[in-house]
Design a binder for these strands. Structure first.
Lengths: 200, 200
DNA sequence: TTCAAACCGTCCGAAACAGACGGTCTACTA
DNA sequence: TAGTAGACCGTCTGTTTCGGACGGTTTGAA
């Protein structure tokens, strides 16, 4: 009647689970607070998790046998987690797992843009300027990260960062182009994609 | 003790709220089921909402005075929604609203890649191939959409689609490059991306 | 000794989520 | 006329996430 933890502990593992497992595996040991920091300066850039989850998940994984828990002897007596063989196995299984879902382009700015025809053109222009600026900022952050020495992060993380870089550049280009097109009164999709505008 | 709906109905409006408002405004009237379909063939491509929300949200908005509700006279007697002036105002306010949040690159594949160093290179290669294929598929879908005649969708939606197209192309390129690099034993980030590492 | 500032952790209400489940209508068939 | 397949349409429920308020602890500087 207990919670249905599958045999080897392969219960329902969520993305957070793997984040934690991966982070702990990568760093050897970690307290929840460490996880928070590690995440913040790596994957957290692309995919943020409420920190409360990083406190809840490790005990859950420990219960499933995927992490081992100890305590600091003095001071705050924080929980320190270490990965177990079962945990390493679960992580490996995930990494080797076939089908990986796709995810979506859930950008609030995109949603707003999709309905921009219902507002004033000036609003669309403001949106575009705002998005361009915001993405430029984030792009700068990523570039600073990318400028770190080669051994500052594992190759895989650097690759991920590179996708992030490409993504931000795409966004910046997109919104800047939109700003220009709107300013030029060029409303249709793209400079050269203009079949006759619908009945003046 | 009711839910704290702010004066003019500007309670807490979520992205779903605006999706509904926008869709109804765009089409004149809509039943929840219509919303489901409209969404599916427009923004739903980038940002999917559980359909239950599209049934729950309209009554909520109607209660706030942003939509007006009527009933089919016969048959299923479905709820038909129409936007009110207050609704149009809320929508306009949103569209004109300054700060728009940024959103994240929440791609499961990216998370997995970030930890690929912990697995076998072959796994990373498989991941890359899988992602490339999946994104190629979605790219094809978007391209079919984009091939529609100019008047098949409003300019703003088409613009949004264009960002989606760019995004999928970026993904396809990224993963395909990774496949090649991995096959060639070229693991580091990128063939030519080497600014002089600071202080060797 | 006191205090501020950083550090660290828990808790909770409100939504979102995913999908099972059930009802209703139309059109075709017998 | 009656039956029925299949599309169409809608609701409900348990679980998980979200986001942030809130509170305690430790350090070290004054």
């Amino acid at each position: 009647m207990g919670p249905p933890s599958t045999v080897a502990g392969t219960a329902s593992l969520t993305p957070v689970s793997y984040l934690v497992l991966g982070l702990v595996a990568r760093h050897g040991t970690a307290t929840p607070y460490d996880l928070k920091s590690f995440a913040a300066q790596s994957v957290g850039n692309f995919w943020s998790f409420p920190h409360a989850q990083l406190y809840k998940e490790p005990p859950r994984l420990a219960e499933a046998g995927l992490l081992a828990e100890e305590r600091e002897e003095f001071g705050r007596r924080r929980r320190i987690f270490r990965i177990t063989d079962a945990g390493r196995a679960a992580l490996a299984e995930w990494l080797a797992g076939g089908e990986t879902a796709l995810g979506e382009l859930r950008a609030p700015g995109l949603l707003k843009l999709a309905f921009a025809e219902l507002g004033r053109p000036a609003d669309a222009a403001a949106l575009a300027r705002g998005q361009a600026a915001a993405h430029r900022t984030r792009l700068a952050t990523y570039e600073a990260f990318a400028a770190l020495p080669a051994d500052a992060m594992p190759w895989s993380l650097r690759r991920a960062l590179e996708l992030g870089l490409g993504y931000e550049r795409l966004q910046v280009d997109f919104w800047e182009t939109l700003v220009r097109d709107l300013a030029a009164g060029r409303i249709p999709p793209s400079p050269s994609t203009g079949p006759a505008p619908p009945a003046a």
